[in-house]
Nucleic acid binder design. Structure first.
Lengths: 166, 166
DNA sequence: CCTTATTATCTTGACGTCAAGATAATAAAT
DNA sequence: ATTTATTATCTTGACGTCAAGATAATAAGG
């Protein structure tokens, strides 16, 4: 099943299905199952490090989007939405919390009163600057057991797969 | 950046970081970002198909675990927990809902009154049998644009990466 | 026995998310 | 000008999840 013969959790699931439902071709389930489990593990590891910085990964997601947009670190909720794969309700909720915590502020647009700008505060900027350092270091740690060749190949395959959905 | 020169969403994020924070090595962010986005897209596609079968992916997760365990399709909550990467509170909640919907029933163990068995009902069995057919077909659809070689290689790399966390 | 530790499950309270729709302002069409 | 369509943001209500701890039964130790 695998090169070195070690069966992982997903292999056990596939073995069960093959015994119970030999009519099913469960090959894709292996890939999708591993992808999901890996994503869950990685998400938890990422969350744990960000929590030490006082940020949920949701909060970091917004602050990092503002930070990497460059000075003056201001984007509309709509622009934030485009970049973050969440619904408008979720974004409103995130902004509310970040505003309460003093990391961002809502600036009214006098030229179009439908819209606002979300701006990093000084505190928000300082926080995300430190957090992104820890986050990037953590990402290196999480992927350190993959060789350079494996990382390049994995990135190529993920990019190709992802292109089907974006 | 990519072989064919097409920049995807994650490339844009990396480009922003490289401009704003050239001191950071964001190479791992590409892999982890694509993995997360892909997992989110795939999760939504899977959810959509299962919803047509009247099941959330959470509900399907439990029913499928019971089904593939084989007859008589009974496992304890603890056994279900081991197989599903969720907390005990989440599992209790899932079982409650499935029981209300008539897909499973709790059977008391007369020899150890701390424990119960979760058993698929006839309705639950029929439902999961149909749902797994649709689910597997959907998984084939979702991965159909990858060549056999790419799928094999992706599976190899995901297995290797996942092994770091399990 | 009787106490203490362990095991198995469930409850609680908080959080993040979404779909659907509400509110409000601007733009377009006549 | 006045209506209609579009755009931008926010609100609501429901759901799934988790961490921490509560409850209850069995097992182990003295």
């Amino acid at each position: 099943m695998s090169e070195d013969g070690k069966l992982d959790h997903v292999d056990k699931i596939l073995t069960q299905w093959r015994r119970e439902r030999p009519d099913l071709d469960v090959e894709p389930m292996g890939i999708l199952g591993r992808l999901k489990r890996l994503s869950t593990h990685l998400g938890r590891e990422v969350e744990a490090v960000l929590m030490k910085q006082g940020l949920s990964s949701s909060a970091f997601d917004v602050l990092a989007t503002l930070r990497r947009a460059g000075a003056p670190h201001r984007l509309s909720p709509g622009e934030l939405l485009e970049m973050t794969m969440v619904s408008s309700g979720t974004m409103t909720n995130r902004i509310d919390q970040l505003e309460k915590a003093g990391y961002v502020e809502r600036i009214l647009n006098p030229e179009d009163r439908r819209s606002v700008l979300i701006a990093l505060t000084e505190k928000g900027l300082a926080t995300v600057e430190t957090a992104v350092d820890a986050h990037v270091a953590n990402q290196h740690r999480l992927s350190k057991n993959l060789s350079a060749a494996d990382k390049a190949e994995l990135d190529r395959l993920l990019r190709k797969f992802l292109a089907d959905f974006e």
